[in-house]
Design a binder for these strands. Structure first.
Lengths: 238, 238
DNA sequence: TAGATTGTTAATCGATTAACAATC
DNA sequence: TAGATTGTTAATCGATTAACAATC
């Protein structure tokens, strides 16, 4: 990773590699805010202002952007659409990615009806469920109608659609099996909503969204607040 | 936070304060896996085994647990239910937390039907929506029936229920307004599913779950894989 | 030129890791 | 006692921050 540094300072873009994970995780936020600004007709934005809207410090923002290259103008700021374009390019949003959603319960439906998909170049190319009541249902995803297909079709749907991303929205006990089949069918990017630690071969990227984890982190801090108003700690406030 | 360090090394539990954020974020995973193990009748587990199931290194696991105290036995491992109890205590799960969900669309319904709520001591104490079609609907959350109430009732629902956590599952443009009202009503822990950076006063804890962000991070890595199979980089593989 | 703002540096902070002494 | 496994240490790594030189 840092090998590329040795190639000399001639390149501006940090070699296209070696963008820190923490930076990558923030780029989508910058990108969305920049698009909002563009929609509002804003042409130029300073790191100070953009950072404030994104909820980060301006130092962090500039550091993050410096990994992509030098897309600002000293004394002026950043051209909103120019920067937006370069972030989307870096994130790989300039090409569309096919998404297969496995599990079309309430959560699956919520994901399908989520407008943020299409607007960012993601296209739902397949819906799968094991429940007979759901299979065959017609669901409309950003204008396109999709038919929920039976689980047996998973491999054929992935292969025929060339889907790149698999979303697991099944109950916990089905998740690992679905994951295995997605991976076997060639999917190497998985978004997992089931509260399970998925086991995957090297090279497969899994991201997990776990409602219970988020709530428990909140509970931890909430408890701290309660503790902090207890007598023992009030000493420190004096 | 690190002030408490100065009080001396007499305490084992890292002072009850100062547990690193990264550790806190992993505790819920350890806790869930421990409960699963307990359900399977497992009595004792080594850091090596537990870590493997949780998808972390054993060094990281032991380091994390060391912040809570010394709940293992050298040469033996950890007593599953003993450790489980102490983690749940640390996370504040030994007391129930009331949760208000604002926005009862597909996502809101998915959250309500999520079994992980009640099983971890969270209790849904209020459902709110602005849409006339949804208001008045009866929704069943882990056995208890709840009525979706109009947004105007937000303050009274929060106050009468003593809710501690607010979940925002509204469209993006309504999120900040809902957030402001929740905070004004006394809620200091917010879980936000809307793709907006919420502005909150100091002391309010916000966690954000953003589907689009997760997908875009996956897309970034997916693009990298494609790049890596391009001719220019193949040189490095030789 | 003067004012503004970027891109980069260097210091600090926090998290991860490997190794091992302590101890069951 | 011998084997196993924890809890802790110290080294490393990565991320954050503040400050400022470069430059529009």
């Amino acid at each position: 990773m840092s090998l590329s540094r040795q190639l000399g300072p001639s390149r501006t873009r940090d070699d296209g590699r070696g963008i820190p994970d923490a930076t990558v995780a923030r780029l989508p936020v910058y990108h969305r805010v920049l698009r909002d600004l563009a929609d509002d007709g804003v042409q130029t934005v300073s790191s100070e202002h953009l950072a404030q809207v994104c909820g980060v410090s301006s130092a962090k923002l500039r550091k993050d952007l410096s990994h992509l290259g030098s897309y600002g103008t000293r004394g002026v700021g950043y051209d909103v659409s120019f920067l937006s374009y370069h972030i989307s390019r870096e994130l790989g949003l300039s090409q569309p990615w096919g998404v297969v959603i496995v599990g079309v319960g309430n959560l699956g439906h919520a994901l399908v009806s989520y407008r943020g998909f299409a607007s960012r170049g993601f296209e739902i190319v397949g819906l799968l469920d094991s429940h007979p009541d759901v299979v065959g249902e017609q669901v409309s995803a950003s204008g396109v109608d999709l038919l929920v297909q039976p689980m047996g079709e998973l491999e054929s749907v992935v292969r025929s659609s060339g889907a790149h991303i698999g979303v697991i929205a099944t109950p916990a006990d089905a998740a690992q099996g679905v994951c295995d089949r997605l991976v076997a069918a060639g999917v190497r990017s998985i978004l997992n909503f089931a509260p399970v630690v998925l086991v995957v071969p090297e090279g497969v990227e899994v991201r997990k969204v776990d409602l219970a984890v988020e709530l428990q982190i909140l509970a931890f801090h909430e408890q701290r607040r309660v503790d902090d108003s207890s007598p023992l700690v009030q000493v420190m406030q004096a």
